[in-house]
């Protein structure tokens, strides 16, 4: 009988207080994103061999995480929402990894 006596919902992992971010935070994030865009373009012109696509994807991932954490408020959301976001990327990686397991090993032993 304890679950519904928690009127303030403080122990509920599916609940988070409604958090309002101010324009200051948003501006910081906005400037960060623009700088990262500049870095990404700059990095593309530096020869780094196989590292080039990795750096590009790493910067893109940082940007995506920044957008999700602050613009999309994931940082201030309940654990449920965080897990939901995680589940999406997890399934996407399952799709990539498991399919790649076929393509990578298809020619093994055949050369």
């Amino acid at each position: 009988m304890s679950a519904h006596n928690d009127a303030m919902n403080t122990t509920n992992p599916e609940h988070a207080e409604h958090h309002i971010l101010g324009p200051g935070t948003y501006t910081t994030i906005y400037v960060t994103l623009l700088i990262l865009t500049g870095i990404t373009v700059g990095a593309a012109f530096i020869p780094m061999g196989v590292l080039n696509p990795i750096v590009a994807l790493a910067i893109a991932s940082v940007k995506a995480v920044v957008v999700m954490l602050w613009f999309m408020h994931v940082k201030y959301q309940s654990r449920l929402i965080k897990m939901t976001v995680g589940a999406g990327f997890f399934t996407f990686f399952v799709l990539i990894m498991m399919t790649m397991s076929d393509y990578i090993s298809r020619a093994w032993g055949q050369w």
Partner: peptide, 22 residues
């Protein structure tokens, strides 16, 4: 359910190694 789909493709020319895993 998300880790087994290639068992529909065993005779389609997927990698033997990947087929083993699936």
């Amino acid at each position: 359910g998300f880790f087994v789909w290639a068992h529909h493709m065993f005779i389609m020319g997927v990698s033997n190694y990947s087929a083993l895993v699936f």
